[in-house]
Design a protein around this nucleic acid. Structure first.
Lengths: 195, 195
DNA sequence: ATCGAGTTGTACCGACCGGTACAACTTACG
DNA sequence: CGTAAGTTGTACCGGTCGGTACAACTCGAT
């Protein structure tokens, strides 16, 4: 226990790894790419992440999950002000995904095979998001089944907005779609719960 | 011009290539994978696709585009019976994507970098889909701006449904979401065009 | 100054990558 | 049957993959 943390890098490198995985995918992000992205040599990377790429991705996913839990899930779950929580979610998501220019790491990982190793993490990410949003809607006037459907649709819609905005190279498409999601959710809160 | 087509394979191999690209992505689909998927050796593959993987993907995308144009876009564009065209679109899409178990090749290609080489094809696929659906809605009572928004939202929603169903490993999620899209579109046709 | 735990770059490994070359084969036509 | 165009498997190329080994280095504690 002499040298503690000389330059403290492991947690420091995670955001750079996340960006690299987002841009190139899990299989596409070679060690050369990850090394350049972090500024660390292979030796350093394997020193911090002995499990290799898989452990790096696990660390990234844990970091992403922590961020979403604190910034998005928690406000929805406590839901003292449902409308504000939903508006906050939309704004946070728009900023985080940079209007669709930035890919959702978890969603993309679930699409391409090779993400099977992280299946439970991926499932948990979306499950918790949907449940948190549904709970927030239930705290408002929305009945349980409608809340579940609306939540599922909103989370799905955000993912679709990312795909479409990327495909069209049109960030405004993301903003438009997500804004409509917000309006739908807020309308439901105000008592227009559909069947 | 003696040997015509001995076993006529080029067009015959495209569906197998498409499945391989869907399952492994563009970068993840190695020549070994493609060879096994098609049952053809590397020599045969390069005989039919001298441009390598890129030409194979182009052929696959052209095939996908042909299928969508004939099965989905054309009925929307002629739109003699808008409601029937929309219901047909939803049913065809559900069958094609196997309730989300099957990935949308074009959407996934747009997410992961490396699909940049096919950017215009990807853009065209989604643009035409949205425009065809919007035109179909316009043929019904829906005003132009609402039609454009609804169409954009529906196509985006289908992509999101694929992402979510895959992430949750729950095919029913796809069916639920897509069914709601159908209901929304048909409701709009019946005159409930929103702002 | 010395030591040792922690950190880093670099050389290297076998495996596999996309792609090429080419000999062996199949087949239609004369 | 002979031949040539078309098709196929296989060996091979340089390069890169993920991962390992290890010597050189940093730096706080003594």
């Amino acid at each position: 226990m002499t040298g503690k943390r000389v330059l403290t890098t492991r947690e420091n490198a995670v955001p750079a790894l996340a960006e690299a995985f987002r841009e190139h995918g899990f299989e596409g992000a070679s060690l050369a790419v990850l090394s350049k992205a972090t500024g660390l040599g292979k030796g350093s990377l394997y020193n911090f992440f002995p499990g290799g790429k898989e452990e790096m991705m696990e660390a990234v996913l844990a970091d992403v999950d922590r961020w979403f839990a604190a910034t998005i899930f928690a406000p929805l779950e406590q839901a003292e002000d449902p409308a504000a929580a939903i508006t906050g979610m939309i704004e946070a998501v728009t900023a985080y995904f940079r209007s669709g220019r930035r890919v959702c790491l978890v969603g993309a990982l679930g699409l391409n095979a090779g993400g099977e190793a992280f299946a439970t993490t991926i499932n948990g990410y979306f499950s918790r998001w949907i449940e948190a949003l549904a709970h927030c809607l239930e705290v408002a006037t929305v009945p349980a089944t409608s809340a579940a459907h609306l939540a599922e649709e909103a989370v799905s819609g955000i993912q679709g907005a990312i795909v479409l905005a990327r495909a069209l190279g049109e960030a405004d498409a993301f903003n438009r779609i997500v804004e409509r999601q917000r309006a739908t959710l807020l309308a439901a809160i105000r008592g227009y719960a559909t069947s």
